[in-house]
């Protein structure tokens, strides 16, 4: 149907624009993947998009060997921070969003408006006072100082409420109640399953948000061994002026961390679209 007029001028224009955009979005990634194969000398001495003497293995060896395997620790920390807090955030959002969609209770709309306001609160504004509170109770500098603030996702509650409202028919809940199922059983056995596309989206949003977060760990952490990979790379980058060897570590580290999440996202692409529809289209 579309191919009736093969390569009409308009089609050529559309494809040319799409290709130009793809070059733009892929260029920095291509640059860092190529740069990750270069020696320090080649990094500065050769054209950016060509590696005359690839030595990726040696660079990776130096990356993961530097400072007693610090980089591997950072990656692991990032997975822990992002994975654990995204899991908890998804569960909390699912419960709150489901209850707000399916049980009328006093103060429900007030709470939901609070949640919506929470979506608009800039994360960086929260980090500073959270640091001050945590330093009063001695939590700063610990694993918990990054994990705990990340278990709250107002946007997740918003998505979960919309999805529960749209996808779970009241008749289904009534039928389950008539069969004698309790409210908790209904939630875990029925609601969670019906809401699962939105829950996957909430998990991915929160995972990526925490993985990419920089300000919170920056203010909370001082021990390098607790750093997530974003904070660690920024720290290495800040040392390049003292010791140029850090350039190579930063570049190779950036390539590895960019590739890790991009691969995760590409493999989960089909889940994204379902959830985005739930979040952005007016009912």
């Amino acid at each position: 149907m579309v191919d009736r007029r093969r390569l009409s001028p308009a089609t050529v224009v559309v494809l040319a624009l799409l290709t130009a955009a793809a070059v733009y979005f892929l260029l920095p990634v291509a640059w860092v993947l190529i740069a990750a194969t270069k020696s320090s000398a080649d990094l500065f001495g050769t054209f950016g998009l060509w590696s005359p003497d690839p030595q990726l293995g040696a660079n990776l060896g130096r990356l993961f060997g530097a400072e007693d395997g610090l980089f591997g620790r950072w990656i692991l920390n990032s997975f822990l921070y992002a994975g654990v807090s995204a899991l908890i955030a998804t569960l909390l959002s699912a419960g709150a969003g489901y209850a707000m969609a399916k049980y009328p209770f006093r103060g429900r709309e007030l709470l939901f408006n609070l949640v919506l306001a929470g979506v608009l609160v800039p994360a960086t504004v929260l980090a500073l006072p959270t640091y001050l509170i945590f330093s009063e109770v001695g939590l700063t500098g610990t694993f918990w100082s990054v994990l705990l603030p990340s278990i709250v996702s107002p946007f997740g509650v918003y998505l979960a409420r919309i999805q529960a409202h749209a996808a779970i028919p009241d008749a289904l809940l009534e039928a389950a109640r008539l069969d004698g199922a309790g409210e908790y059983r209904i939630f875990f056995r029925i609601a969670v399953r019906v809401m699962s596309p939105a829950l996957v989206t909430i998990f991915l949003f929160q995972f990526i948000g925490v993985w990419n977060n920089y300000f919170l760990p920056l203010v909370m952490l001082s021990d390098q061994r607790l750093y997530p990979v974003t904070l660690g790379l920024a720290q290495w980058n800040s040392q390049t002026f003292r010791d140029p060897a850090f350039f190579e570590l930063t570049v190779t580290g950036a390539a590895v961390s960019a590739l890790l999440l991009v691969l995760t996202m590409a493999s989960l692409q089909r889940f994204w679209r379902a959830g985005l529809t739930a979040g952005s289209v007016k009912e």
Partner: peptide, 17 residues
Amino acid sequence: VSFFLPYGVPGVVASLL
């Protein structure tokens, strides 16, 4: 996929690149 891919690159890494 290629337009969406940079969303997975952390802000720190994007700024470094």
